[in-house]
Design a protein around this nucleic acid. Structure first.
Lengths: 335, 335
DNA sequence: TTGTAAGCGTTATCAT
DNA sequence: ATGATAACGCTTACAA
């Protein structure tokens, strides 16, 4: 089996010591003589040597692995962020992917795995929850990870004491509400997602706040999963009611898409707005009114912080959403 | 820094040898006495020990890492497959993610990285190309990887001598063409994607074949990127022509979405069909006629093969596509 | 500049 | 059943 080429073989073939071989294959550049240097390089080339980064990690006590933890890589929100993060990690590191399938314990597990692995960094993306016990445990795990020399970055609420990229969900949803009222909408419903998810909660609160500033309030708030199917179900449920609002805010785009599907099925006319501005969904018709989050930037920023040297102080980058009014909430003056 | 808990510490605290500690923390179950076993477990618990899998990999000469190589994790085709694969890998392994950004050399690089890492398996998903030199090199790299004791699985054309999940692109596209003609469509265009991508090529060929069996042929074939923007551009280009076909086949769903956007912008009426049946896109309106590939199954199957013991002989699983006729190609008898 | 050798955290062989 | 101890592939003082 394993004709796995080892550095020792390279050294032998080049007729140098293991140490010298190690030095040229990576180490401090110039310390090794040109002659030997070339010979080692040649030997490595001929043998098809590739460093065993695991062994390097063990020897060095640190690795170039970056752990990316997402709830669900299939969800475009996360896959967009992941792609952007990959692009910055890739050149100098390797990415380990963990998906929690939206189960909290998994977050903890990943952090300690990454710690044991002396990962260079861990990036946790996804909403925090109302489960304070879990949040505290996770914050502790992250603190230990950082104490062990790793970098931790989170995309989401600033609750874990790590560097964070913080989307201003509340403000974005508030702005959306204002824009919608100003557009002429008068009655509102909210597909609020899970009541335990802070991201969902913040968006709901912000939206209600925005409405309040225009002297209005939602006529109905329905909770469901944070997914396409959640949006579909909640909207179906809403449509079963005697009276329905003229405009419905789904707390994220994939829910909004599900909601629009439900609306379409029944052949009714209800305005729908989402949140995120998922790129893949920009082409749906009618085009979706939403709050744009710069997902790619967020992924890039998080990864950059992860790859940086740990700064002197914790960084929290606030990213704000931009209301994008599109056809899904355009009021038709003929109904 | 690193208060990284080591197995030696656990052993010491439990008052047993390193070997014994190692045995209980993982090893062959029953070999160690109940007394010691408990003490070690307790010590590990108290210290918060987590095994350093990198060190384990070095010692064992193999790891539980599975390398997943995709062109672009943001593309829903790949993220759906990735999510499904994750679900089967997760329980007993860890996933390393590599994205090639559609650059071939990266495929090679990942395979050798995974080899050096003694990864348990590598799953390569994505189309092969017309570049035979690269294909041969990659096949060699994979052969070496397998010789080194790893499992290799590919999702795509069966060109790499590995276990493969093979989507029947040609047959699916042929069936689609037949269905479209039978639906009443008479003139066809093809947004063919890159001419070097075998997946695109197979779909084009199959579609042409299907048309031929009904005595027809495409009036125009346009090449472009395999992406949303590629579809948009190619369709725009097509619409600039003097005459346009009544029905356009885009060789994948994301291209079809881009194409539909272009069509919508110009306010014309052209039927559009895609290929893949991306879940996220099932809710677009008008709903997209396409060929459904069981992407989740494909991801699961690939991952299962990757986690299996290497079978006695190479496996090639053919998966066929199912034509799904939806609104985007429904003929309106009033134009 | 180069080599020797100790060590990284684990596993596995071999005694006991 | 348990414990020394030699590996695993690599890095890094410390010498030379």
């Amino acid at each position: 089996m394993g004709s796995q080429v080892t550095l020792a073989q390279v050294a032998e073939r080049a007729g140098v010591s293991l140490a010298t071989a190690s030095r040229v294959v990576n180490g401090s550049e110039r310390v090794v003589g040109a002659r030997f240097r070339e010979r080692v390089l040649a030997a490595a080339e001929e043998l098809g040597y590739t460093a065993n980064t695991f062994a390097q990690a063990v020897a060095r006590g640190r690795s170039d692995v970056v752990g990316l933890v997402v709830p669900d890589i299939q969800d475009p929100y996360f896959s967009v962020i992941a792609a952007a993060a990959m692009a910055v990690v890739e050149p100098s590191g390797e990415m380990m992917l963990g998906t929690t399938l939206r189960r909290q314990e998994q977050e903890l597990r990943y952090v300690s795995t990454m710690r044991a692995r002396q990962a260079r960094a861990v990036i946790m993306v996804g909403s925090r929850t109302t489960d304070n016990t879990h949040t505290r445990q996770l914050a502790e795990a992250i603190a230990e990870f950082v104490a062990g020399g790793g970098r931790a970055v989170v995309i989401g609420q600033d609750k874990l004491g790590a560097d964070t990229v913080l989307p201003l969900n509340r403000a974005g949803a508030k702005d959306l509400a204002l824009a919608l009222v100003d557009q002429g909408h008068r009655s509102f419903g909210i597909l609020a997602g899970p009541s335990t998810l802070l991201t969902a909660k913040d968006r709901v609160d912000g939206f209600i706040d925005g409405l309040a500033r225009r002297g209005r309030r939602p006529s109905v708030i329905l909770h469901s999963d944070f997914t396409r199917d959640g949006g579909y179900q909640a909207m179906s449920q809403l449509l079963d009611r005697r009276t329905t609002p003229g405009c419905v805010f789904a707390v994220n785009d994939v829910m909004a898409i599900g909601a629009m599907a439900a609306v379409r099925e029944r052949g009714v006319k209800i305005a729908v707005a989402g949140f995120d501005d998922i790129p893949t969904l920009r082409d749906v018709a009618p085009s979706l009114t939403t709050v744009r989050l710069p997902l790619e930037d967020m992924g890039r920023m998080a990864a950059s912080m992860a790859m940086d040297e740990p700064g002197e102080r914790r960084r929290v980058i606030r990213v704000k959403g931009e209301v994008i009014l599109r056809d899904s909430t355009t009021l038709v003056r003929n109904a």
